[in-house]
Every structure is written in C-alpha cells, then in structure tokens.
Computed example of a mutant assay.
Amino acid sequence: MATKHHSFVVIGLGTFGGTVALELARFGNHVTGIDRSERSVAAIADELDRTLILDAREDVALREAGIEICDVGVIAIGDDIEASILATITLKTLGIKKIWAKAASKNHHRILSKLGVDRVIHPEKEVGQHIAQVLHNPLVRDYVSLGNGQHVVNFRIPETLEGRKLDELKHHGFDLRCIGVMRGTEFLGQDGSGCVLQKDDLLLLLGGRKGLRDFAGSL
C-alpha cells in the first residue's frame, strides 16, 4: 500500500524547523516553509515546494499566503513567544486540522495547550532525555516512548547471553512483551519461538519504564 502524502506548512526555518521541513519534503510531502529571515528561507528554498519570507506575527500576511489548504501546521518558533502564539491563533482560525508547536518554556507550553495545539514539542528536552536513557544503560541502543508510560526499547544482547534461547530470558517476570529480535537487517523470533540469541542481536521489548530498567539491570 502506498504511503499517503500530506501538505504541511512549517513556520520558522531555524535548525529545528528547517530540519523538519526538509525531512517532510524528503518523504514526498508537499511542504511550504515560512520564515521572516531571507537567509533561512534561501538556505532550503530549492528543497521545498514553496517558501515565503514573511513575519508570522502578521496575521493578514499569513492569511493571504494560501496555507489554509495545508493538512498540518508546524510552528517551529521557539525564541519569539509572541510570534509563536499569534501564528498558532492564525492557523487555528484558518481551520488547519492538526497543529504541532515548539515551546520554549513551561508557560509557553501552557499557552499553546490552551490554544488547542495538538502536540507541544520540547526538542532539546526530549533529545536530552533520550540521550540520558541510552547513556545510562550501555545495553540500550535506542528507545521510543509510546505514551501512557509504555516504551519500546532496543536491548543489545551481551556476550554472556549468546546461545541462550529467547524464552529463557524471563522478561515476562518484569511485565514485558517481546516484539522480536533484529539480527543485522533481518527480523526474527518472538515470544516462545525458541530463537537462539547471538551476541549483538537487538532484542525489542515493550513495557513500562520500571520493568525495562529492572530487566536491563538483571542482564
């Protein structure tokens, strides 16, 4: 089944917003990038479908930009709270279905939430938490938070577990579910499959933070 492409408007083309815009375009989506800095716009203009140089605080300019046809709005302005809030209000009044916005502080977060933003983003905080989790346990290669306290974690199988069967790991005792095992680019093995583990296999586990932490400590 082909992936459905969407139309996005990204307001604020700094390091964060520019990266989001470029990646969305790379996935084949229609992306409009907006920034008041001519330099920021020029840096990625050739990679996006459309770019505009305008101040997000000017609601008339945003309204006349034709962005109401976009499915999703990303407000990536972090250093100018006024511009972020005004851009959010304009996108809401234009009827854009989904809005994500970057927040610079807790108060900024609260305001964006009150305005009905679908998701408030704290890039630096989220990346910092991610890095700390991986640094804390050398066996954790990566993890994804699914919300509601649930996470999917990649555990690197250490040499001490080489040759053990997957169902011998006792992860059930930590209230964890095994999604499977990655060996290089190959996906194999699930609960009860009798998969024999090799050093540097990646074990994909789903569960709560405490269970995952305790299981990692038991390896």
Rank of each mutant, 00 (worst) to 15 (best):
V134T: 10
G192V: 06
L202E: 15
C178G: 06
A65N: 03
A216P: 11
E168H: 00
S7N: 05
G28S: 08
L48E: 11
N154D: 15
I179F: 05
D167K: 00
Y143P: 05
D200S: 13
H5V: 12
V127A: 15
T185M: 12
I77R: 02
G116Y: 13
F187D: 01
V152P: 02
M182R: 15
E124D: 15
F27I: 07
H5W: 02
T32E: 05
D49R: 04
A42S: 12
V134G: 01
E126D: 15
Q198F: 02
D46M: 02
H109K: 15
L205K: 02
A132I: 14
V117N: 13
I111N: 13
I77W: 01
I85T: 12
V41L: 06
G217T: 11
L204Y: 06
V144I: 15
F215K: 00
G173Q: 13
A76Q: 10
P138S: 14
S84F: 09
V31A: 10
R39N: 13
V74H: 01
H171R: 08
G17W: 04
K170L: 06
I89G: 01
W100T: 14
K199E: 11
S218I: 10
K4H: 06
T88M: 12
D46H: 10
G194S: 00
G73R: 10
D59N: 11
G33L: 05
V134H: 00
G14R: 04
R63T: 14
K170Q: 10
I75D: 02
